[in-house]
Design a protein around this nucleic acid. Structure first.
Length: 193
DNA sequence: TCATTGATTTGCT
DNA sequence: GCAAATCAATGAT
């Protein structure tokens, strides 16, 4: 049996997502996003996430349910896909009104393009508005399966690109992983000599 | 109905 | 380093 097919059939259960959002964001690191496609399986290792929680001014759900964010109020493991500028971003709903943004993957299958950054990640996995509301537990588009464990340390930092609540450390990434979308804020660019 | 804004990416300076 | 691209959700009028 194809190992990716086997993985796809053994996803994280809904109970995995029905926990504290910060814990889910952290625990998703090292897990794998797996998706069937015409050209074969697409899979990547999750290396960077962000948490969006209740009472968080940077969250799309801050002002309560709207037509756009309704997926954040559905069950745990629901995909919330929205458009920003000209790209899409994908989140996984945890508790009602809270979600984890998938920011970067380390490619695990051949043929995958650049998956550093939420927009590129969605592009490479073909995630668009039509995938909003689907499930990463039982859905056919993509699922999250457990990783094999991580040696890398988990690093917390401010979230990227937001205007409000910039001081909260709700971004989680695998320290030193080259597929993380941006270096830690405050880190010096390496000087040549 | 109108104006503003953004959980991004890209390209140019 | 900075601004443009580009569009729909959102809030104000």
């Amino acid at each position: 049996m194809d190992p990716w097919e086997h993985a796809f059939d053994h996803p994280r259960p809904a109970s995995f997502y029905a926990r504290d959002t910060l814990v889910v964001a952290r625990d998703l690191l090292g897990d794998r996003l797996v998706s069937p496609s015409e050209g074969g399986w697409r899979a990547g290792r999750i290396v960077e996430t962000e948490a969006y929680v209740t009472g968080d001014p940077a969250s799309h759900a801050y002002r309560g349910p709207t037509p756009r964010n309704q997926s954040m109020f559905r069950g745990p493991g629901t995909l919330y896909v929205y458009r920003i500028h000209q790209v899409f971003c994908a989140n996984i709903t945890t508790r009602p009104g809270e979600a984890v943004l998938l920011r970067a993957l380390e490619p695990l299958t051949a043929g995958l393009g650049d998956t550093r950054g939420p927009g590129r990640l969605c592009r490479e996995f073909g995630l668009t508005r039509t995938d909003d509301g689907s499930s990463v537990v039982t859905g056919a588009r993509c699922r999250v399966v457990p990783g094999i464990g991580t040696r890398e340390a988990v690093e917390r930092s401010p979230r990227v690109g937001i205007r409000r609540a910039q001081r909260r450390l709700l971004r989680f990434s695998l320290e030193g992983n080259p597929w993380v979308s941006r270096p830690r804020p405050g880190a010096r660019p390496r000087s040549p000599a």
